[in-house]
Design a protein around this nucleic acid. Structure first.
Length: 551
DNA sequence: CATCCTTTGAAGGGG
DNA sequence: CCCCTTCAAAGGATG
């Protein structure tokens, strides 16, 4: 109960939630107003409850299972596609154009960004061409030479927020070469963020918001030019340029100075390119001193061992993480809660509420990141980072029980801005701004395309999502979770087939031709099915709520 | 000061 | 082939 108020859904009825969280009993009333909102709250609560239940009786398996399953299917395909396929001409293109803008903007804004920025900028600045050439031997010096992209800084901070616009997906961009043209530092820079990209809607206060850094946002700048000097040699430029993503940015920011980057045994980024992902082992992620040159210096010297072993290369961010980075600031601004845990819950719900298309954006970005990451660090495997985090107690989590929960969640999301509602639903819809037009590109990118309708429906799903996992849709594996989950019913695609085919739906890197085809043809029966399922869910949801409440 | 908590997704390993 | 575990970000809370 206590818990996560903060979690209060923002999306649907933030207000409601807030309130609700006060009195659960009242939920009903609220419901009348917004079912969805209610659900959010309920969801949260239920989730809590569930957790508690799970903890006590259930095996953790349940919890863990769901998520993973979904992923798996996707992964396979994706991975295969991405990594293996040497080239998806499509990707680069897609990303580039858009990325640039969106990312740029923020650059500096977020707190995290702040830290990062310094480091990053320099890197980012790197002139594409030069970088490319150098790629192989990107000496630190070169990097340093690079001037930071001032322009970006100038850009609206807000811009970054919107990071993902349909643009990303836009097919239009030219292929491999893109970098030259688009990337061209000059050109790239010049690009200012399109107003459209900017998130006008951001209610954030300048102060708080201003900082908001969109992780993604930074990317943009890079895009303009190849942040990564990487190169040519081994890597493909296009990606690099594109690639900047949150993770990358972070990586970069992280401090990896050239020194650090040095060589990875595995990864080789001989290029020396500092990838955002790279973190000096000692430093870990972003401890305070990320920027601190000291770290760098020191690392080279003393830490050689460690470094040699391998710089800590972070995992590429997945779609949700990217989304979180982007949206966190918003959520924080909207609600008083600052706790990441609570915010993450909200974000999780929002994520589910997003339309497929919107999610597709992130999936796509995530893909790109993975791609880029793989290119930068060919030998790297997630396993390398195992054990880096000491924690792991989580397991207990099951045991931990709700108590902890409640305790932690103390802060309620106090109030969401009135706007919230707007935000919420709009959130997805906001995205609308981005994708609203739903550029075809989007569609391409994501199979989601078909989903236009979903979005709305999807939201409701979100509610159930968690709860459902446990109860209703065990199957759901579906990666795209929300949607997929719904698919459970839809499963027709068959659980098995469904999975594969629809990882994140869009995520799969299809060859251009494929993409087109996909566009033309419905993504898959699966989607349709999903839709139906959504509907079903939708309707059912109320029930679920009831049940929950009943409970 | 270090870890927890929380979210979804990705990846790897084990059975 | 399926399930489980770990990590990715983030920042207040907790020990």
């Amino acid at each position: 109960m206590p818990q996560l108020n903060g979690g209060g859904g923002d999306e649907l009825g933030a207000n409601d939630e807030l309130i609700s969280f006060k009195d659960e009993g009242e939920q009903e009333e609220k419901i009348s107003e917004n079912v969805s909102a209610e659900r959010d709250l309920d969801d949260v609560k239920s989730s809590l409850v569930n957790e508690s239940e799970n903890n006590s009786s259930s095996s953790d398996s349940e919890v863990s299972q769901t998520p993973p399953r979904a992923d798996r299917p996707l992964r396979r395909q994706q991975d295969g596609g991405f990594f293996k396929s040497p080239h998806y001409p499509g990707y680069p293109f897609l990303m580039i154009p858009d990325l640039g803008n969106p990312y740029l903007s923020n650059s500096a804004l977020s707190p995290s960004a702040r830290t990062y920025l310094q480091m990053k900028w320099p890197l980012l600045d790197v002139p594409g061409t030069a970088a490319l050439r150098d790629s192989r031997s990107p000496t630190p010096g070169q990097l340093s030479n690079k001037v930071p992209v001032v322009q970006h800084a100038h850009m609206h901070p807000l811009t970054p927020l919107i990071t993902y616009s349909n643009e990303h997906f836009s097919p239009g961009t030219p292929p491999a070469h893109l970098s030259p043209e688009i990337l061209d530092p000059k050109t790239g820079i010049p690009r200012t963020p399109h107003p459209s990209e900017l998130s006008p809607y951001y209610p954030l206060s300048p102060g708080a918001m201003g900082q908001i850094p969109h992780p993604l946002g930074w990317l943009v700048p890079q895009q303009g030019q190849p942040m990564y000097p990487i190169t040519a040699g081994g890597f493909r430029h296009p990606y690099q340029a594109l690639a900047m993503n949150a993770s990358m940015s972070s990586l970069v920011s992280s401090r990896f100075s050239p020194h650090i980057v040095p060589h990875h045994p595995h990864s080789l980024h001989q290029t020396g390119i500092p990838h955002p992902a790279i973190v000096s082992p000692a430093i870990k992620q972003e401890p305070n001193g990320e920027l601190s040159p000291a770290a760098n210096t020191k690392s080279p010297v003393s830490t050689k061992k460690e470094e040699d072993k391998k710089p800590h290369i972070k995992k590429p961010l997945n779609a949700f993480m990217l989304y979180m980075k982007e949206m966190r600031a918003k959520v924080v601004a909207e609600c008083t809660l600052k706790e990441s845990a609570a915010i993450n819950q909200i974000l999780g719900r929002r994520w589910h509420s997003l339309s497929r298309e919107e999610q597709a954006k992130y999936y796509e970005l995530a893909r790109k990141e993975r791609q880029l990451h793989s290119q930068l660090y060919p030998g790297w495997s997630a396993r390398d980072n195992y054990g880096k985090r000491k924690k792991r107690k989580r397991d207990n989590k099951t045991d931990s029980t709700p108590e902890d929960f409640s305790a932690r969640n103390k802060k309620p999301c106090v109030q969401y801005l009135p706007q919230e509602k707007m935000i919420d639903s709009p959130a997805s819809s906001h995205g609308s701004m981005l994708d609203s037009p739903a550029t075809p590109s989007v569609a391409l990118a994501s199979p989601a395309a078909p989903a236009p309708t979903h979005s709305e429906q999807a939201q409701p799903l979100s509610l159930t999502t968690k709860p459902d996992r446990h109860h209703h849709f065990p199957l759901l594996s579906k990666p795209s979770s929300s949607s997929s989950s719904s698919s459970s019913s839809s499963s027709q695609p068959t659980s098995s087939s469904g999975r594969q085919s629809t990882p994140p739906l869009l995520s799969r890197p299809l060859p251009l031709a494929s993409l087109h085809a996909s566009l033309l043809s419905p993504p898959s029966p699966f989607h349709q099915a999903a839709l139906h399922s959504h509907h079903a869910l939708f309707q059912s949801q109320p029930l679920s709520l009831v049940t929950k409440s009943a409970d």
